[in-house]
Computed example of a mutant assay.
Amino acid sequence: MDESHLNKNQKKTSWVVVLTFLTMLVEIFFGITSGSMALLADGIHMGSHVLAIGLSWLAYLIVRRVSRKGKFTGDKNKILSLSGYSSGLMLLIFAIVIMVEAIERFFYPVSINFKEAIFVAIIGLIVNIISAFLLHHDHEHSDHNIRAAYLHVIADALTSLSAILGLTVAMIWDIPFIDTIAAILSSLVIIKWAIGLLKGSGSVLLDIEQKHHSHGHHH
């Protein structure tokens, strides 16, 4: 990773951190003032992504600091992979939490304010789509750090999308379990991504050469 890519990726990541953080604040604020559980829950979820993407941003900062000082003798790319690995673990936890919540809802259904929940999910989706565009990176110069931030955003978009679809179907055709099924399916996909990220970044950390090095970034 050369300086210009680090710089570009750091900028992208910092914008996304700010955007996600502001959305989180707005959602938590309105969640509390309007007594909306959906907004509050989504705001808290956003918080976990703020932490993960903030970690990615921090990793760029550290890499650029050590690049300038020149005292660091290790492989600088490994800092990015370590951040990506940690972020991957967070993603895995995020997916499992959603799955557990969904299964709990299946056994103890709560009454959902559909219109409001769908509205919240749409806000989340829009923010995540903007973030995904911001974080979009050319795979050739991809590092596990920006990939991790990107996956967090896409994962959140996926959960928002599955919530929108699930809630809409539940509201129109009165199928109560559909949003639980949607949440579990999206969790499984996110778990698959997280494991891919852990494998990719883990192999860099352990100096395991991957056969398809330049193109080893398929979803």
Rank of each mutant, 00 (worst) to 15 (best):
S131I: 03
I118D: 03
I146E: 00
D174P: 05
Y85H: 05
G84A: 07
I126L: 15
S86G: 15
I44V: 14
L151T: 04
E101R: 09
S56E: 01
G43C: 06
H141E: 10
N145T: 03
R147P: 00
N113C: 08
I175A: 10
F133T: 12
D156F: 08
R68M: 11
I112Q: 08
W173P: 07
L161C: 07
Y60G: 06
H137I: 12
D179G: 07
I172T: 11
F106Y: 11
H49D: 11
S56K: 02
I118C: 06
A59M: 09
F107C: 09
I79A: 05
A38S: 15
A117P: 07
V100M: 12
V120Q: 04
M171Y: 13
D179P: 07
I154W: 10
N145W: 01
I62E: 05
I44S: 10
I112C: 06
L161F: 14
A41N: 14
G47S: 04
H139E: 13
R65D: 08
A38V: 09
I175M: 12
G54V: 01
I126N: 06
Y60S: 05
W173T: 11
F119G: 12
I62T: 11
M171G: 06
L82P: 02
G35V: 08
A59D: 03
A41T: 15
F133L: 12
P176H: 10
G166T: 10
L158I: 08
F133D: 10
Y108T: 10
L151N: 04
Y60V: 08
I178R: 03
I118E: 05
Y60K: 07
L161K: 04
F119I: 12
